[in-house]
Design a protein around this nucleic acid. Structure first.
Lengths: 343, 343
DNA sequence: CTGCCTTATGAAAACGTTTGCAGAAACATT
DNA sequence: AATGTTTCTGCAAACGTTTTCATAAGGCAG
């Protein structure tokens, strides 16, 4: 009762129509194909919209049209530099194509991710981007059944169930490790992120360990530590490791956030970088160049990935092309700065 | 034609109903008030939903119910540590109240913010949170006319047109400055963020300059530099300033991002901190404690702000209370770490 | 003045839910 | 056996748009 009354206060297209002395159809056309409505009507509608403060109802439109103009992005975390540039670029590219981003994060929990996917599908996103290759079966199933254009970003590998746009993280891990090896290091501490729900981290580890074993180096368990993507935690872990008498001469960090933590740990222990300790990161986040000493890292072109993913999704929506041939692999690049040195 | 055909492929509530041999109404009740539908029907509906892969259509529901279960948050930037914790806490608090966050960012451009507000209103958010006190008149107008519960977060001041939850940034600026003064500093370089579209920055500046003038200190124009919230840019600016022969003995940084840049600038110039230079930041972001030396800063309880804002909005929606008495001011706290010292 | 094309408009049927109302069936109470 | 209560279900009317189809009005050629 009163609820209905209250709701009446917000004007709809028919209110505008009545006030402008036209039919709702004309008002709708005023917004969607302004060129086919007469000047006089346009004028009247315009003022009616103004005085009523009319704002179109996206739900109603999407219900009718079958499309929302909305595209989803699901990232592991927002709390962190890691996906900030990706998100930003994705969002910009979308708005250039007059669509809106719906973003959600699951904190590296794939079960929660499945829930988020469902929630985004309830909101009828026209397409969806997921970070990483590994997801619950339920997630893949749902996506496929609904036929929602979807894309996997950030990690790349051939022949995935969905098109993917990203970098080969095995290569990333390998490159970072190889750089340390090239500098003469063999006693390297590896700080990997927890890999269970994180295929990027898993791939980096695989690549790193492969690079080592190819050179005949073994990596004892004590030299493989799991470390969260968090400066404070990384610093604490690194401090512990660096205080040991058999401390490593180089540290491979799962990403730049960890690397920064390691850097600060070293500084707090008066360990000179890069003389006494080489540190390499992954990602080349914003700020990684500014740190002192500058962080040597493997650059991931996150802005380009984000932008390209958005463009591809738009393309997939507009042409409803079979998604198979959309894979795209970006190259990574070693950025050598001051945190590594020849032993 | 073919469009309609295609669309038919995605099952609706009536498809489920048909398959389960019940009416659509019953299926609807199955989702919304499961307890009043018979066990047998529930069973049949359940399997129908499963086999069809039915996902409810939020647009249709919201059209009927007049509420979307969705709450908007508009922040200046996502690209950055600044609002990460706020966003995270906001989002968590919402999902605890079974609502979804819609987030958008405008890059410190209030005109763009106005557009975003309109877009969120098109999506019929049930409520809306904006960062900061200052917004375009059009924004306030729109919000008021629609009667959408809205709240201003992050900055606090009495008697605002909308309820606000945050800290008094004049006090923040004052506290940071006072700390430097207490340590015996008077030659302080102030790195303020551009204040035109940013009332938080403006207030911090006001507070900082007030603290100075109360002590009878003047701050010459050369000691007030505008600096973006970006580590790299801040570092570059600070390097420039610190290379000057008349370099300051202390630097007030508009936030912790700037402060980090300053820190790295000092390190790159071999200026010892805090012996030769005191640095204070604002915010106490994640990681500010880990930096070496630890960053002295004024802590803003961003998680609590985010959470509280979300809770208040939910409250406002559910009770549709007059919004006036919802103001909430959080205290700030000076966190003294290693980057400042008595002169 | 008639007929034909163009342009601008309106009427009405969707789109996929929810929900008030009413009825049917089952059960309990006299 | 009649009546009253529950419990469950279906019907149908919203919700606010868009879009198809049809029609009216205006312009122009003959």
């Amino acid at each position: 009762m009163s609820r209905k009354l209250l709701r009446k206060s917000i004007p709809g297209i028919v209110d505008v129509a009545r006030r402008a002395n036209v039919s709702p159809a004309t008002v709708s056309r005023f917004f969607n194909q302004p060129d086919i409505v007469s000047y006089a009507a346009k004028k009247r509608i315009e003022t009616a919209v103004q005085t009523l403060g009319y704002v179109p109802n996206a739900a109603a439109r999407s219900l009718n049209r079958g499309a929302t103009g909305t595209i989803g992005l699901i990232v592991p975390t927002l709390d962190n530099a890691i996906f900030a540039e990706l998100t930003q670029a994705f969002s910009m590219a979308l708005s250039r194509n007059s669509r809106t981003m719906l973003i959600a994060s699951h904190n590296y929990d794939l079960a929660r991710e499945a829930v988020l996917v469902e929630s985004l599908l309830e909101h009828r996103v026209d397409a969806l981007a997921l970070v990483g290759l590994k997801h619950e079966d339920a997630t893949f199933d749902l996506l496929q059944r609904r036929g929602v254009p979807a894309i996997l970003v950030w990690n790349y590998r051939q022949r995935q169930p969905l098109p993917c746009v990203g970098v080969d993280n095995r290569e990333v891990g390998r490159r970072a490790t190889q750089h340390l090896i090239d500098l003469g290091h063999s006693d390297i501490l590896f700080l990997f992120a927890e890999a269970r729900m994180n295929d990027r981290a898993a791939d980096r580890r695989t690549g790193a360990l492969a690079a080592m074993s190819e050179q005949g180096y073994r990596v004892p368990p004590a030299r493989r530590i799991v470390c969260p993507y968090d400066v404070d935690a990384a610093k604490a872990i690194a401090v512990e490791a660096l205080k040991s008498p058999s401390r490593p001469a180089a540290i491979f960090s799962g990403n730049d956030v960890i690397a920064q933590g390691v850097l600060f740990a070293a500084m707090s222990l008066q360990i000179r970088i890069p003389e006494d300790l080489s540190i390499i990161g992954i990602g080349d986040f914003r700020g990684s160049a500014a740190v002192e000493p500058g962080l040597t890292t493997v650059r991931i072109p996150s802005r380009r990935i984000g932008q390209r993913a958005a463009e591809l999704l738009v393309e997939m929506i507009e042409w409803s092309t079979p998604a198979a041939q959309y894979d795209e692999r970006f190259d990574v690049e070693l950025v050598e700065r001051g945190s590594t040195a020849r032993i």
